[in-house]
């Protein structure tokens, strides 16, 4: 208990930083989150990190609610709260603040420059998230097949991704035996 509070505070600081740097959404900060949680602080192992991310895929609602589980695994209930507040509050406060004046900038010439300029950064960060997760998670031929199949189907057809995640679960179970 006593060592959970300092850990929760470090989590709060680290996840607040991730929150305001998450240009491109949740997958954009996966590599940095992995670096902080697994490599620097060694709060979790790579396998645990990967499994927690996978758990998050079957939960409903916005992606990345799995940060709660990371927080809980690192520092109990305090960690849960620290990770959730840290990850979701700062970016939301920023959105609220920017919304107050963004309207009034409709004719400001740099507005579109900022939107267009941050787009490649967001895509690059998302790609780095995919890269990290592929390194951690794509194991063997079955894994490669599942990842490729999922990518292809999602690009070609409008289908709820949950079915493909569940297909991945099934493939994992079948491939193992």
């Amino acid at each position: 208990m006593m060592d959970e509070i300092p850990k929760a505070l470090s989590l709060l600081a680290a996840f607040s930083m991730l929150s305001v740097l998450a240009v491109g959404g949740g997958s954009a900060v996966l590599p940095e989150m992995h670096k902080i949680v697994v490599l620097q602080h060694e709060w979790l192992g790579a396998q645990q990190f990967k499994e927690i991310y996978s758990l998050g895929q079957v939960a409903p609602g916005p992606n990345m609610t799995m940060v709660a589980v990371i927080g809980e695994s690192v520092a109990g209930p305090f960690g849960w709260l620290a990770a959730v507040l840290g990850f979701f509050l700062p970016s939301s406060l920023l959105a609220l603040a920017v919304n107050r004046f963004w309207h009034r900038l409709e004719s400001w010439q740099w507005r579109e420059s900022i939107e267009a300029g941050l787009a490649p950064l967001a895509i690059g960060l998302m790609a780095s998230g995919a890269w990290l997760l592929a390194k951690l998670a794509v194991e063997g031929r079955v894994g490669l097949l599942v990842a490729t199949f999922t990518t292809g189907i999602l690009i070609l057809y409008k289908i709820n991704p949950l079915w493909l995640i569940l297909a991945g679960v099934a493939a994992g179970l079948l491939g193992a035996f």
């Binding site: 997760l133 894994g143 994992g172």
Partner: peptide
């Protein structure tokens, strides 16, 4: 072992999901 392999399958599919989303959102940038 069941849970580990089930989650490994979900993780592999999640990689596909991120790749597909990146390509779809980033069509212009790519």
């Amino acid at each position: 072992a069941w849970v580990t392999t089930a989650l490994a399958g979900a993780a592999a599919a999640a990689v596909g999901l991120i790749v597909a989303t990146t390509i779809q959102i980033g069509r212009r940038q790519l």
